[in-house]
Design a protein around this nucleic acid. Structure first.
Lengths: 339, 339
DNA sequence: CTGATTCTTTGAATCGTTTCATTGTTACGA
DNA sequence: TCGTAACAATGAAACGATTCAAAGAATCAG
């Protein structure tokens, strides 16, 4: 078990000073071609690999960016993460991915970890009350960009999608196709995104007389949770069943759909129209292809990195809040049955 | 923009030696309660956070484990990754996730990155020809465990699932329900897993006289690639259409299903029975709930970490190859139509 | 009160890289 | 041949945590 070769070993082997080896690696133009060749050959022969810890220690910070998402099991977040990784790679940084799983404790654990790792900056979809932590990070020179969440004040940059608008679009679409007894199936409304989508849905419903909106809340936001809530809906007496269901995300919608499909009592969309949120790749291949509200995942991830880069470049950055507009995607789960 | 407080700052503030601060953090019992309190208070007041780079530099290795998967867009791999993260957390390590995207170049890039980071060990689903790199890593004391891939020789530990068996199960199931003109829709057969599944399918077909197996190969393995191949199948003259399709993974299967569903010419499973592989969460909520071959993702991730832990503990570890057995899950896409 | 023993605390050395002031070398015009 | 740039190479210092031999303090038996 060899100890890895260090820059000093390389220097000895090539009969140059350590500073020269460092220059070959970081400022190749400053080194004469002959010396450079000798050093490169030594590197090759010894199989030298830079020690990133030492480099970071000297530099005072790493070349990594931390990203904390709410749920890696949700394709929406993996899509955002991939876009962020690609964009970060262009800036020469790597992205460390942390999954809070909607848990404030885990979230806090990742913030600790990233802080110990001296990440350059942090992208986060916050769960808990992290303002204070983030302020503290910023004082230490670690900027944060909020992802999928509008910054409350102007002290943070953020990338978000207008969830109120999205909720409005979804509910109005259900109303447009003649549904009046709507249900909003959601995870905890303490999650800002869900609360906003509900808010939007409420507005749409308020515009139409005779329309009602029931809120069905669960503590999960997975396919399984959706199935549970679907079962609950299906078990009701017929006159209590909504004719339009808007789910706070596609996972919930797919779960509800499974449940409806399993009991063959209700047809989608004839008896119950169903719309989700996020437009994940799997929405289109659902039992009944799922209508949804599309969010521009690629742009979200890319923009988050760009905003972070701005904060890193400037000494007194102006914080920006970029808000994207969601888009209605109509598929079979709400098709046909127009008024 | 404050420089973060260092252990030395804490020491000054608490009027003790740096070694004492270090002991408070790492060997609390060696420090008298009074001193400990003073140090802890100083840490609190200065908002001290350990610098992981310095710690690693001294220790010679990090507390991280690298995991390189073939495709984070595939829920199979995210499920394995999550299990690995949970298991690693129990050992006090964090997992860095890299996505090679079936690209040998990106794979190599992540190996470089992880090597620079001095990860404790590496879990990898290899794409390219990485044996040599891995041998080199091991010489440096960085053990590797192969994931979702049986080790060729006994020099590596590995966790895999018997893909030949899985392919056999899938194809035999199609044969059992009376299908004879089978097609294997797959990504590149240079991917070991796909090649093995094909091998298994071939064996099953060879057992039944009058049965045939056509291989439809694409260079992708996503939902989109599946759709492309589905379109190609659907465009054929009716007598050239297979009556049983086995897809090398569920993403391909969902794509093929979309394509079949869009042209309303063929019914699933009556005209064409369809089975996928991996049994991802979304399989059950597909247009037609998808039959599949289930792999124990949780056990794979957990076992990978355990094998790695064994390699790290022992000086001359015995390498172990753990092989799980896949399981047939029958749903509607192949149901009914028994002979 | 002494010497032995245990418990605390100290601080210099170390890890591997980068930086930068300094020294050494080369080339060229005068 | 000399002086002066321009260019190359050097190596000590610094980053921040951990380690460990050694010194110092406290305790206790005799």
């Amino acid at each position: 078990m060899l100890r890895s070769a260090s820059i000093k070993d390389v220097a000895n082997h090539a009969r140059v000073a350590v500073g020269t080896v460092s220059n070959v690696l970081n400022n190749p133009d400053r080194v004469s071609p002959r010396t450079k060749d000798r050093v490169l050959q030594a590197i090759e022969e010894l199989g030298f690999v830079r020690n990133d810890a030492a480099r970071q220690l000297r530099a005072g910070h790493s070349r990594t960016i931390g990203l904390i998402v709410l749920d890696v099991g949700n394709p929406f977040f993996t899509a955002v993460a991939r876009a962020a990784e690609d964009a970060a790679a262009l800036h020469g940084s790597a992205v460390l991915l942390g999954d809070s799983g909607h848990d404030a404790g885990r979230e806090s654990g990742y913030i600790d970890l990233f802080q110990e790792q001296r990440v350059q900056g942090l992208l986060i979809s916050p769960v808990g009350d992290v303002e204070e932590r983030l302020d503290q990070l910023r004082e230490r020179g670690v900027p944060t960009v909020l992802v999928d969440r509008l910054a409350d004040d102007a002290s943070y940059s953020s990338v978000s999608v207008n969830d109120v608008e999205g909720g409005f679009l979804a509910a109005r679409h259900l109303l447009d196709i003649g549904r009046r007894r709507l249900a909003f199936v959601t995870g905890p409304t303490s999650v800002r995104q869900f609360a906003d989508r509900l808010e939007g849905a409420r507005r749409a419903v308020a515009d139409v007389s005779g329309a009602s909106l029931e809120v069905v809340e669960s503590d999960g936001q997975t396919v399984l949770a959706g199935r549970g809530m679907g079962d609950q809906l299906v078990g009701r007496s017929a006159d209590k069943i909504p004719d339009g269901i808007f789910c706070a995300n596609d996972l919930l919608a797919l779960g509800v759909m499974q449940s409806l499909a399993m009991t063959h009592t209700f047809r989608i969309p004839e008896d119950v129209a169903l719309i989700g949120y996020d437009d994940i790749d799997f929405a289109v291949s659902a039992v009944v292809p799922l209508s949804s509200i599309r969010q521009p995942t690629e742009a979200i991830g890319r923009t988050a990195i760009e905003l972070l880069a701005e904060e890193l470049d400037e000494t007194h950055p102006r914080h920006r809040a970029v808000v994207f507009t969601p888009e209605l995607v109509v598929r079979q789960s709400t098709a046909g049955a127009a008024v």
